[in-house]
């Protein structure tokens, strides 16, 4: 397979739009076509990607634990901000990769959770609401805008992205971790909902959540996970930027090999 970076211009010469006004009209046409297209693609791809890599942690409030949810989520969540963040910044100088992709994910998640988990499968909405991650996208984008460097954005923004998932969501999650008692057993509100609202094919043991270890020093679980997630996410973000760089290559080949 031979890659050709610069295909010969098919038509050269004096052809062109008649005026700047016409040019602007053409640009507007492109914007009107491309911007909604990007939004819809982000909604579709991100939603698909996130469902199949994070899925249950975001579907059910009784999955959002202190150890696995804040670790798995940023790793899957920073993929599209990395890939499309590279494209949007490198080709258009738009610091939108983080916010726009996550905004699209959030919109798609609310629509789907409402239609599928609430209307179709009948769960109450307060059991299946999606977490929020928009703040993380904003941090990445603002960092990129202010530093104009993928390196610093990865180092600080990528770290903050992993670090802040838990505190960002705590304002919504906290009430679901208030304790109560059921038949002599202590549970959180989220656990109780998981027990009461029957899920035939997701039995309790399928939950991948924190189980204590003899070396779990009490409340250190959340901050440790946050710092580890932050560290992993620096590398993760850089890696996906690189994938974005590969994806943005305008490669041409002669034929299908």
């Amino acid at each position: 397979m031979k890659a050709i970076d610069n295909p010969a211009s098919v038509s050269a010469g004096q052809h062109g739009l008649s005026s700047a006004i016409e040019q602007r009209k053409a640009y507007v046409q492109v914007d009107l076509l491309v911007i909604p297209l990007i939004v819809l693609l982000f909604m579709g791809i991100f939603s698909f990607h996130f469902a199949l890599l994070v899925g249950d942690w975001d579907y059910w409030v009784d999955w959002r634990d202190r150890r696995w949810w804040p670790l798995v989520t940023p790793l899957a969540l920073s993929v599209l901000p990395g890939v499309f963040g590279f494209l949007l910044w490198d080709k258009l100088r738009l610091p939108l990769g983080g916010t726009l992709t996550i905004l699209c994910l959030t919109l798609a998640a609310w629509i789907s959770r409402y239609l599928n988990f609430h209307i179709f499968a009948d769960f109450p909405m307060n059991f299946v609401w999606p977490s929020t991650y928009i703040g993380l996208g904003l941090i990445l984008d603002c960092m990129l805008l202010l530093t104009r460097s993928f390196f610093w954005t990865g180092l600080f923004g990528g770290f903050a992205f992993g670090l802040l998932i838990y505190p960002l969501n705590w304002s919504m999650l906290a009430p679901f971790q208030v304790p109560l008692e059921l038949n002599g057993t202590m549970l959180t509100v989220a656990d109780l909902m998981g027990y009461e609202y029957i899920r035939t094919a997701i039995p309790e043991y399928v939950r991948i959540i924190e189980e204590s270890t003899l070396r779990t020093f009490g409340s250190a679980v959340t901050p440790l996970t946050a710092v580890f997630a932050g560290f992993l996410n620096i590398l993760n973000y850089w890696f996906w930027l690189w994938i974005g760089y590969l994806g943005a290559k305008a490669l041409w080949i002669r034929k299908i090999v």
């Binding site: 939603s47 698909f48 798609a108 789907s112 599928n116 988990f117």
Partner: peptide, 16 residues
């Protein structure tokens, strides 16, 4: 990729 994929998720998690 979004509503119809997650309909599949919701369905299979509550049925056999």
């Amino acid at each position: 990729a979004s509503p119809f994929t997650e309909a599949d998720a919701a369905w299979h998690q509550v049925t056999v």
